[in-house]
Amino acid sequence: MTDLELELRDLATHLDVPPAPTLLGVVRARLVRRRRRRRGLVFAVAIGFAALAVAFAVPGSRASLLRFFHLRGATVTLVDRLPPLESRGSLGQPIPFDGAPFRLLLPSGHRPEQVYAGDGGYWLRYPGLLLFELESGPGTEIIKKAALGTTNVEYVDVDGEPGIWIGGRHAVYLPGGKPRAAGHTLIWKHGLLTVRLEAAVGLEQALAIARSVR
């Protein structure tokens, strides 16, 4: 080892490093919460299937409700025809980057071109990509979507969190708005947020973007 390397080792002993906090309690609590959320998700899916069974038992609804996907804050229903759709209008009120009441999640840490407050959450506009982030409590369903029965809709895993992929044109209902047309979309949970990503990309690329948010 050279003198410089020895000096670096010596320097390490003089660094002002705060004492390590006890992490076990917090980590344990977060893992317990996560296990409960997963159990909640299983319960919600079970409820969804029960709803589906009920829907099929009712002759009038058999033609419209084909399948049902759910995660906290979002529900996707497969139907045999979409309602009349409007193209997307304004995303809402432009706000400063740090204007949201929670820390916005950013793909690979990149800042968006613009942030908008609207539809009960926050839109982040990037070239060719839109993110919508909202805080959603258990039992709330803020994003509702309807997709044709032929559209590829599936549950996916985003770094251990549940998500739903909608691979095609569909209708999106956001709070207080009319149904709008939307394209390929990935919705997933990230901590206390529900995040919706819309971009002209396939599932793998959407997952890669979703996994990069922080």
Binding site: V17, P18, P21, L23, G160
Partner: peptide, 28 residues
């Protein structure tokens, strides 16, 4: 936990960031 925090602190340079990073690291 001690090594995780120290590693995160040396790389991030900030105690709050290091604590969060170590916590998130264990959860992930």
């Amino acid at each position: 936990q001690s090594l995780a925090f120290r590693t995160a602190f040396v790389l991030a340079g900030d105690a709050a960031d290091a604590e969060e990073a170590a916590q998130d690291g264990f959860v992930k």
